[in-house]
């Protein structure tokens, strides 16, 4: 049985208070704790925080509202509350479905939107207890997935020689819906939020805290959808997931795959293919088929073809996501 390394614990009443402690670089922020506590208990990182800073003491970061033409979700809002929100389900279907398909009911009741978009990768080498694989992401010399079992790894190449994928379910929905991540310092487009070489999974600075996720209301008549393929439907991380927002009348589409690359993969070619098909006289099936094929046009299996199956899944999910928006 694993023993815990010690840490101190502070309740931060406000984000500023939390940021002041995080500035040291020796502290970790805790929201729902469903990702953080796993990394601490199993000591997956080479370093351990001196202090865990609890953001949950701030009562003003838990809300779902719509105003100023956008949906606004406080960083501490639980995934289950997002999944059950009638407002989210009706107008921001891809986000509601992504929240609903994340993890298990218990983890959704604990896990927050802020924590979900900031979670660390799930690569099994990276996550091995006691930092047994000190991989390139942790400052080591190699990515063990290059030569090891990489059946769940990237089909769009490495990010700085790391093949781990972004495992989040909310990320592709937020990119497809063109969301913005508002922090204590700035507002970042969702598409840029993960646009980073490690260390880290996000572009956030040490003492930067996600405060709110803002999702612009989709154009009238546009539809969004989220689909996920996982080994077990009830609990597993995505093998591949895909979110799409299609505005049939306007002839535009936004399509994002995740768990296929180090960052959520915005499928620009698929978007163009879908838009072309919509502007032409194609049927919904033809438009979806074209989008699916274009989504994986640049995908490559790793040597040994162990992760080749993910390409077919990505293609099918992109196709079905577009189709779901056109129905």
């Amino acid at each position: 049985m694993k023993t815990w390394k010690k840490f101190a614990h502070v309740d931060a009443k406000t984000a500023e208070e939390a940021a002041a402690i995080l500035k040291s670089g020796r502290a970790a922020l805790i929201a729902g704790g469903t990702d953080l506590l796993g990394t601490l208990r199993f000591e997956i990182l080479p370093t351990h925080p001196e202090t865990v800073v609890n953001l949950k003491a701030d009562p003003f970061l838990d809300y779902i509202k719509e105003y100023g033409g956008a949906l606004r979700i406080g960083a501490l809002t639980r995934l289950e509350d997002i999944a059950r929100s009638a407002l989210v389900k009706e107008r921001y279907a891809a986000l509601g479905e992504a929240a609903h398909r994340t993890a298990t009911p218990h983890i959704r009741e604990m896990g927050t939107i802020g924590g979900n978009i900031c979670q660390l990768p799930r690569c099994w080498y990276f996550r091995t207890p006691d930092n047994r694989f000190n991989c390139v992401r942790k400052g080591g010399g190699q990515c063990f997935a290059m030569s090891g079992d990489n059946r769940y790894h990237s089909i769009f190449g490495a990010v700085k020689s790391c093949l781990a994928v972004n495992p989040g379910d909310l990320a592709p929905a937020l990119v497809a819906l063109d969301a913005k991540i508002h922090t204590n310092r700035r507002t970042i487009e969702a598409e840029r939020f993960w646009d980073v070489a490690f260390p880290g999974s996000t572009v956030l600075a040490d003492d930067e805290i996600v405060m709110e996720v803002q999702v612009p209301a989709p154009p009238e008549g546009a539809k969004s959808a989220f689909l996920k393929f996982a080994v077990r439907k009830s609990i597993d991380f995505p093998v591949v997931n895909c979110a799409a927002l299609v505005d049939k009348a306007g002839g535009t589409a936004r399509i994002c795959l995740n768990a296929v690359h180090g960052k959520p993969y915005r499928a620009a070619r698929a978007e163009a293919a879908a838009a072309d098909a919509l502007k032409g006289n194609s049927t919904a099936e033809e438009a979806a088929e074209a989008a699916g094929a274009a989504a994986v046009a640049e995908a490559r299996a790793l040597p040994g073809d162990r992760n080749k199956w993910k390409i077919q899944i990505a293609r099918t999910l992109a196709k079905r996501a577009v189709l779901a928006c056109l129905r």
Partner: peptide, 19 residues
């Protein structure tokens, strides 16, 4: 107690709080 966060750049720090 070493710099922790995966995204952290080590900075000189005083102890932030007592355990």
């Amino acid at each position: 107690a070493q710099p922790y966060n995966a995204r952290a750049v080590p900075v000189a720090s005083e102890a932030v709080c007592a355990s």
